[in-house]
């Protein structure tokens, strides 16, 4: 049970003091952040801030040597199986098999999470309806538009019923309409299904005042608070530039 001593809501994700280097280049420096259950949290940072590296550590594509990462109380390093079972991931780069249909991609993912074939079909129908791709189940991924493919990736991430969703710049490369659709879809998942979300982005207009925001810059957390608190009297954009500009100058 990932609840702290003060009886706060359970933590879907708890990252504590994580650092990571590529040779002599320090990509993450003592990063800590928390995502409670049923909360939309944004990881805000420009390209190269370390967002994808952090995602790679959370998903155990890389090993976290320092600090700890817990998903619903399961340490990713010590208990990777239970931790990864609670995670749904939408990677920055497209990772669906373009030669296969939406259903075949979803079925493959379900199998990789130990789901039986009979359950997979029913689940797939439920999640494609959820992402409004009900009529595209048997379409080849190569035939989908960018926005549809992104929604199919979200459907895939939901196939095994995760309680924490990681999305790494999921709207990059999408047109405005598709971007809005994807953002709304994920916010619906948070409000209606109680899924915790960590949404990595560099696009400020995707963040709402009540969202929990972690500003990551050059591998360091510069701010970790609700967006309206970070904005203060001004805009989030001004606050973000002030934070990252000050860091860059130092």
């Amino acid at each position: 049970m990932a609840t702290d001593a003060n009886n706060l809501p359970p933590l879907a994700l708890d990252v504590e003091g994580v650092s990571h280097s590529y040779g002599s280049l320090k990509a993450l420096d003592e990063v800590s952040l928390r995502v409670p259950e049923g909360v939309f949290a944004a990881l805000l940072g420009i390209n190269g801030a370390g967002k994808t590296t952090l995602f790679s550590l959370i998903t155990r594509l890389y090993d976290n040597v320092t600090g700890s990462i817990k998903v619903w109380g399961h340490d990713v390093r010590r208990k990777p199986g239970p931790a990864l079972a609670e995670l749904g991931v939408v990677f920055q780069s497209r990772s669906l098999d373009r030669d296969l249909s939406v259903w075949q991609n979803l079925s493959y993912h379900a199998a990789l999470h130990g789901m039986s074939r009979s359950e997979s079909r029913a689940r797939a129908e439920a999640v494609v309806d959820l992402v409004r791709l009900g009529d595209k189940m048997d379409s080849r991924v190569a035939a989908l538009s960018g926005g549809q493919a992104r929604r199919a990736e979200i459907a895939r991430a939901l196939m095994h019923g995760p309680r924490l969703l990681l999305l790494d710049e999921p709207t990059v490369g999408l047109d405005v309409k598709s971007r809005l659709e994807v953002v709304e879809l994920v916010r619906d998942l948070v409000s209606k299904e109680g899924v915790g979300v960590l949404w990595a982005t560099h696009l400020l207009d995707e963040i709402r005042p009540a969202d929990q925001v972690t500003v990551l810059h050059k591998g360091q957390v510069l701010a970790d608070a609700p967006a309206d608190e970070i904005s203060g009297e001004g805009t989030l954009s001004d606050a973000f530039l002030a934070l990252t500009g000050r860091e860059a100058a130092a």
């Binding site: 379900a110 990789l112 999470h113 130990g114 789901m115 039986s116 196939m159 095994h160 019923g161």
Partner: peptide, 21 residues
């Protein structure tokens, strides 16, 4: 939540994963 699925992380799940691959 309504999104929960029946996952198997034991040997039954491994058979499913092997079959899927």
């Amino acid at each position: 939540t309504s999104l929960r699925a029946h996952r198997r992380l034991g040997w039954g799940g491994r058979v499913s994963a092997f079959r899927g691959v």
